[in-house]
Amino acid sequence: MQSVWTLLSWGSEGWLDDIAYGAFVTVSLALATLPLGLLIGFLIALAKQSSERSLRLAGDIYTTIFRGLPELLTLFLVFFGAQIGIQQAVRLFNPEATVEVNSFISGMIALGVVFSSYASEVFLSAFRAIPHGQYEGGFAVGLSKAQTMRLVVLPQLIRIALPGLANLWLILLKDTSLVSAIGLTDILRQAGVAARVTKHAFLFFGVAALIYLALAIVSSVGISAIERWVGKQEAHR
């Protein structure tokens, strides 16, 4: 029976290095997903606040679908769906080829799509909080539509949307644990391997949970720093 500290040490005896690698994968997946989700979410929100009915309908369909599906199912749909789709496309040219879809990319797409459908709602309510006079003011000083968006609306939008987006980031960080189901070596998968090998399941899953907790705490500190900074920007004007 090894002691707990040997099990949690760095190196070939312990598992800390493996779990640290898992934490690295988790964080990089979340960081890679964030810009993708923010971009798609912003575009969907633009569509949903447009005066054109068909655009609103298209945006609403998107959110209804991806907010209604379980994240795990979305992940499997992307992972296996992309595998089958690409396989069939490649088979047209090369019947022998087999395709292995990257689970990191699949996770990024699936989580990004889920994140964006929630983010679009956050952006949408932020859009609604910006008075119409801001657009009219932008027009009155001769800014083009794109300039009004970039210089007038966006800085206010970010400030209003920040708390909602911070919440979504914390959810995203937790949702990354699902990719362990499609074989990505994140925190939870590494902890699972360690638990199977050493039979100390409670210890390793407990450590995994604590690492997620630590990531959440670090994120909260970072978020409040960003909020302070953004608040200061506002005060200076």
Binding site: L188, F205, A209, A216
Partner: peptide, 23 residues
């Protein structure tokens, strides 16, 4: 509240299902 909202549900399920087996 902080623990259960700050960790993934999947990790909590693993902690109970596999972890409690240690005891």
């Amino acid at each position: 509240v902080y623990f259960f909202r700050g960790t993934p549900l999947l990790a909590q399920a693993f902690l109970v299902y596999y972890g409690f087996g240690s005891f």
